[in-house]
């Protein structure tokens, strides 16, 4: 780990002031990913600005939505009674991630900004365009079971590892930012980028910008929602494929509205817009679900080790929607 200086910020403006103009400064949340990457010398900040003292409240909004302070821990968010009642897919997504210990440490802001777990990204001896632009990508023809089947580029096939973000993408969450040029907001679905030819630039954050809060709009039908994560062991593993879904069916058994997002398949949490469009107005049955899944995965391409994820994603989508159809929750 490279040496650094440490500062603890009392509020967002103090944090921004501390980091301003320093490209090698990093905001430190729970540290569960950043500290690991620093130890591997993949991240080499010269300054850490501790932002765990920033607001961590989880407050219902008058419109029925929710405002979540970026320093709220993953556990706090998953255990929040409003989240459990109104956004169960979010609670389940968070709880499917990592371990209880890590969820107790990790913050909402940090979870959003965690970096890929591609082993070639972690190994300084490997070629990685994300770690070292222009170096090449050892994952593309290497061990790529956990890699992207959607939206990948010749430069990078890494995936975003967050479970929570998949639910946030499905919920149309807004991310509130603050930075040297002032506060602004961005849809979570637009915060993370596809790799293109610059996989090292992972988000739309500008230099020095900080996530201060995440806002969930009201979504009454999200009470009928869930998250399913498929992985290589029964717990404590990253997703091969995950599906966050909320389903609204009318009395005639027709899909009135649906939210669907995928994890483990792309460089960003993948909002399944094509599948959603294909489902709306269709009968809520296995045939429609399969057609929607096919529509979403039509553009998917497999690599040596991960081609199975295309079919796995389709099946998991169908299963999750089927589960929500049968469930009276």
């Amino acid at each position: 780990m490279n040496p650094f200086t440490y500062e603890r910020a009392s509020d967002a403006s103090a944090a921004i002031e501390l980091a301003k103009g320093n490209a090698a400064a990093r905001y430190l949340g729970g540290g569960t990913n950043l500290v690991d990457l620093m130890r591997e010398t993949v991240e080499r900040p010269d300054m850490l600005v501790d932002v765990t003292g920033l607001p961590r409240g989880i407050e219902p909004r008058a419109d029925g939505g929710l405002l979540i302070g970026a320093a709220a821990t993953n556990t706090a968010l998953a255990a929040d009674s409003h989240v459990r009642r109104h956004y169960p897919l979010l609670a389940r997504a968070i709880l499917a991630g990592a371990s209880a210990q890590i969820r107790n440490m990790a913050t909402v802001g940090g979870n959003i900004l965690q970096r890929t777990r591609c082993r070639y990204f972690y190994d300084n001896a490997a070629a990685c365009n994300k770690r070292q632009p222009g170096a090449g990508c050892d994952a593309r023809d290497g061990f790529n079971r956990y890699h992207a089947i959607l939206g990948a580029s010749p430069a990078c096939v890494a995936t975003h590892p967050s479970d929570m973000c998949v639910a946030l993408a499905a919920l149309d969450a807004t991310v509130h930012l603050d930075g040297p040029t002032g506060p602004r907001s961005i849809a979570l679905a637009e915060l993370h980028r596809l790799p293109g030819d610059r996989p090292d630039i992972e988000t739309e954050l500008k230099p020095g910008e900080l996530i201060t809060a995440v806002e969930l709009p009201p979504l009454p039908f999200a009470r009928r929602s869930t998250y399913r994560k498929v992985r290589d062991r029964a717990s404590y593993a990253f997703a091969l494929v995950s599906v966050a879904a909320a389903l609204d069916i009318d009395d005639g058994g027709v899909v009135r509205n649906v939210r669907l997002a995928l994890g483990g398949v792309a460089h960003k949490p993948w909002r399944a817009s094509a599948a959603e469009a294909a489902l709306k107005g269709r009968p809520a049955n296995a045939e429609s679900f399969r057609a929607a899944a096919e529509a979403e995965l039509a553009a998917a391409t497999g690599l040596r080790d991960n081609a199975f994820k295309i079919e796995l994603a389709k099946r998991t989508i169908v299963a999750v929607l089927g589960e929500l159809t049968g469930d009276d929750a």
Binding site: D138, G142, F143
Partner: peptide
């Protein structure tokens, strides 16, 4: 390709 263990 490299003789290196990837999932170390």
């Amino acid at each position: 390709r490299s003789g290196r263990i990837v999932n170390a």
